[in-house]
Design a protein around this nucleic acid. Structure first.
Lengths: 104, 104
DNA sequence: CATAATCATAAACCATGGCTTATGATAAAC
DNA sequence: GTTTATCATAAGCCATGGTTTATGATTATG
């Protein structure tokens, strides 16, 4: 599986996490997010750009506003990747445990 | 669910990702990692410290060496959190879709 | 006991990136 | 048509954090 870790990078910043969490609760405009969080509107726009490039959110123009909502597909990709990574890591871990037992 | 995002922050750095991926393949010492990756030994130690505090790896002293392996418990916590977040976000997304349809 | 190997911590350097202000472009409101 | 609201981008500032060198502590080796 190919994954560029963009989702992890995007969620590493606290402010960007809050932006994402708010959008995950329901669609929000840039102005709404800027009013809700203690950062400027350009900062919000920048965070949304990173989240969008990480395929965690999508934009939907609505008049002068830009409504952001989550990107189920991209979010699912990140989840699928973590699931596989988790499985692989645990398999390798169990192999090491068995190898250690054989040493006895 | 309480989660401090430490796992995401830890995996946001490219070098630290490589350290983790190598450890996930099987137990490795600090010296081994330092020989494998193009960074100094103190850099490796620092990355391992971050990964350990994020509960993604654990250390096991073995003589003068320090063998690192994954922390299945901590890794499982991160996976469980992402699973729940994913479910919540999708539920909220579907609610919005239905709301939009009722508007018609 | 002396030497070599392993590792963690501290200090210093510097690039990355998150933030603000400034600005222009588009759309709604009056 | 003028004003107001919304949004994205650019430029500049500055803190965060990733890196290296230096160092000391602990353990194996000879």
């Amino acid at each position: 599986m190919v994954y560029d870790y963009a989702g992890m990078v995007a969620l590493a910043d606290p402010t960007r996490r809050k932006v994402f969490e708010l959008v995950a609760e329901g669609p929000r405009s840039v102005a709404n997010l800027a009013r809700t969080l203690p950062v400027s509107q350009p900062a919000i726009s920048h965070h949304l750009k990173v989240l969008k490039e990480a395929r965690l959110v999508r934009a939907e123009p609505r008049g002068a506003s830009n409504i952001y909502h989550i990107d189920p597909h991209g979010l699912g990709e990140m989840r699928a990747w973590l699931d596989q990574m988790w499985g692989n890591a645990l398999d390798a871990f169990r192999n090491e445990i068995n190898k250690a037992k054989e040493q006895k």
